[in-house]
Write a protein that binds this DNA or RNA. Structure first.
Length: 537
RNA sequence: GGGCGGGUGGCGAAGAGGCUAACGCUGUGGUCUGCAAAAUCACCAUUCACCGGUUCAAAUCCGGUCCCGCCCUCCA
């Protein structure tokens, strides 16, 4: 296989404790620890999803082919406990939350992994791995349980940077005295009555937590994986144990680059299930657009802590809006004119040069340990340059349009690498969306007639519905995250029509009626009042 | 106690020996607008927790002090 060296791409490797130049083949393997599925995921769980999705997108942008694996822990004490409380089957419960997980992850624009392996589907592989560990002297059985013999693995502690002695000395856990060493951890646990189990040479039981990732990672990605990611709280013991297991079995390095993201905090305290200070992602997504949440997560470097509160998301929304406005402005600038010119000229060339320079900066930032925070800074500078050009340049000029087409594309692509331009557009076929131009035309008529009371009323009312109306030369631009139900808009239009009729402004009244009719909304004047129905078109 | 990371303007956040300390939010004033919004222009840290030191040069390196978070237990 061709060996490509990317001298520039650096990553902070937890294992070495410093930034290293990534030395990767054209095909990169990534394994990211996924959730234990006994609940909806919270915002803290969402950070690694977005972080490593962004790493993946960037590697792909650079031309690597990424094989991406993310597991689900669907066999676990917590799941069993929760299932018992609810009187449900543990695997069914887990299955439900896996589906919910995908719904959330999709909203955030997380690209699906090539494989999402589950523990329950790899019990056989796990049993084989445990057998091997016992055979090699790295594990021992104890009344149906199997433990990993930490002392047998000389390099134990190399990831988390601690020595076995320290751990034994400072152990705060209740120690099972049967174990050879306090630090030995379970590979196989025998089932208590009522617990789900699988047959094994040692007992009816289930795997310990750590073995699954060692097994599934090597199963899908080979003995050595390029990048293994997860939250920093997994460094010890989870990832430390993964190394001990996998390397004891294969005799090869398990992972080349370990990446760990920092935590989301609330009032500077780690957001965690045990502290109870967590926010369910779904609840947040009900209140804020998904692209805003993603922007918020990616606007800070992945290893830094990130504090959460609503104000931070509101700020993220305003900031992202600035970027998205440029997208809109560029689209409007190009509108009408086809790109029939080969090159941009004059000022357009200058713009291209600036944008290309900023693109280079963006790439340098991302090459330096995926510094999305700095990269976003360059995105804002691009946005600024584009806005200036759009404000000054003649939009009939084909060369100018070509310049915007090219530079706008770069801007859009880079934003997409971060995943912040990927929010699904509001359904453009929706009835509500089709109704908006009627408001636009009414407002413009009013403005032309200098009927500012009406013009302002229209804008204010829409604003109260969460729709911003921004005037341009001839028409108005609408901006919104959600649209109200069609009925709400229709009622408003009918109220306006009634007002027009009262004032005997029949042209306007009829304009509303006709416009609605064109969109498949029939209105009927009856003695009791106005009725309307929406007919499918 | 051991290990890791951090303290930068009103807020958030980059920068890790040498350009005016990015960028965003907020705020102020101007342009544009019927008024707005959006856009745009200008302004907003002589200073980077504190004290010493190295250096021609330090927010960035070294030593010390004070704070804060995280891991060492299930956790992303």
């Amino acid at each position: 296989m061709r060996k490509v060296r990317w001298h520039k791409l650096k990553v902070y490797n937890t294992l070495s404790g410093d930034k290293q130049t990534l030395d990767l083949n054209p095909e990169v393997s990534m394994y990211v620890c996924g959730p234990t599925t006994y609940n909806y995921i919270h915002l803290g769980n969402a950070r690694p999803l977005v972080v490593f999705d962004t790493v993946r997108r960037y590697l792909e942008y650079k031309g690597f082919k990424v094989k991406y694996i993310q597991n689900f822990t669907d066999v676990d004490d917590k799941i069993i406990q929760r299932a018992n409380e609810l009187g449900q089957d543990p695997l069914e419960l887990s299955n439900f939350y896996i589906e919910q997980y995908f719904a959330d992850a999709d909203k955030l624009g997380i690209i699906r992994a090539d494989v999402h392996p589950r523990v329950s589907e790899h019990i056989e592989d796990i049993i084989v791995a445990i057998k091997t560990l016992i055979d090699k002297g790295y594990a021992y059985e104890l009344n149906g349980d199997v433990y990993y013999r930490v002392k047998a693995f000389a390099e134990y502690g190399k990831l988390s940077g601690r020595s076995l002695d320290d751990m034994l000395a400072g152990a705060r856990v209740e120690v099972d005295m049967r174990k050879e060493e306090a630090a030995d951890f379970a590979l196989w646990k025998s089932a208590k009555p009522g617990e789900p189990y699988w047959e094994s040479p040692w007992s009816k039981g289930r795997p310990g937590w750590h073995i699954e990732c060692s097994v599934m990672s090597t199963r899908y990605l080979g003995d050595t994986v390029d990048i293994h990611g997860g939250g920093s709280d997994l460094i010890f013991p989870h990832h430390e144990n993964e190394i001990a297991q996998a390397e004891a079995i294969t005799g090869k390095p398990f992972v080349r680059y370990w990446m760990h993201n920092g935590f989301i905090t609330v009032n500077k305290e780690k957001m965690s299930k045990s502290l109870g200070n967590f926010f369910i992602l779904r609840d947040i997504l009900d209140r804020f657009p998904a692209d805003v949440v993603r922007y918020y997560l990616v606007a800070t470097h992945y290893r830094s802590p990130l504090d959460f509160d609503d104000g931070k998301l509101e700020e993220a929304g305003r900031a992202l809006n600035r970027l998205k406005t440029t997208l809109i402005l560029a689209e409007e600038f190009k509108a009408g004119g086809g790109a029939e010119v080969e090159s941009a000229g004059g000022k357009g060339l200058e713009l291209e040069e600036k944008i290309n320079g900023l693109r280079k900066n963006f790439i340098e930032a991302m090459d330096d340990d995926f510094n999305t925070a700095r990269a976003i800074g360059y995105l804002f500078e691009m946005s600024h340059q584009l806005n200036i050009f759009i404000a000054d340049a003649a939009r009939e000029d084909k060369q100018n349009q070509e310049a915007i087409r090219r530079t706008g594309k770069i801007f859009y692509e880079l934003g997409s690498v971060l995943g912040i331009f990927t929010a699904p557009a509001v359904d453009s076929d929706s009835v509500s969306e089709k109704l908006l131009p009627i408001f636009g035309q009414l407002r413009n008529q009013a403005r032309q007639e200098k009927n500012y009371a009406l013009a302002d009323d229209l804008r204010n009312w829409l604003s109260s519905q969460g729709i911003a109306m921004e005037d341009q030369q001839e028409d108005s631009r609408f901006r919104y995250d959600h649209l109200p139900e069609p009925n709400v808009l229709i009622e408003k239009l009918l109220a306006l029509r009634a007002e027009f009729k009262k004032n005997k402004v029949y042209i306007q009244a009829d304009f509303i009626r006709d416009s609605l009719q064109e969109r498949g909304i029939i209105i009927e004047d009856t003695r009791e009042g106005v009725r309307f129905k929406i007919v499918e078109k």
